[in-house]
């Protein structure tokens, strides 16, 4: 499953996508994120299987543009901590 967390508003499209086929629930991204945007929880979208997967916390889903902002400087963009930490390449950002 591709889980798209985030939103689109007048200013743009801000989504963090977790590919749950690739995610193994290791939690490296959770540790890496300075803004504590991610957590590893039971898959809310497949309650029957209920695998442990990385997802964006409820508190951040409506403001990831701002939560992730300091990690996306306008110049000399470094790779994002969550994406860099994920050995499975399961995380992408839309902006």
């Amino acid at each position: 499953m591709l889980a798209n967390y985030g939103y689109k508003d007048g200013s743009g499209e801000y989504f963090i996508t977790v590919d749950t086929e690739k995610c193994n629930g290791c939690g490296d991204c959770v540790e890496a994120c300075p803004a504590k945007v991610l957590e590893v929880i039971e898959d809310q979208y497949d309650p029957i299987e209920g695998d442990m997967i990385a997802s964006v916390t409820d508190a951040h889903r409506k403001k990831i543009k701002y939560s992730c902002g300091p990690g996306k400087p306008v110049s000399n963009r470094p790779p994002l901590p969550c994406m860099a930490a994920c050995a499975q390449d399961a995380i992408t950002h839309s902006w």
Binding site: K63, K65, Y66, S67, G69, P70, K72, P73, V74
Partner: peptide
């Protein structure tokens, strides 16, 4: 202020 500060941090 939270939203503006995030933007300010992006430019440093």
């Amino acid at each position: 202020a939270d939203r503006i500060s995030s933007m300010v941090r992006r430019v440093g």
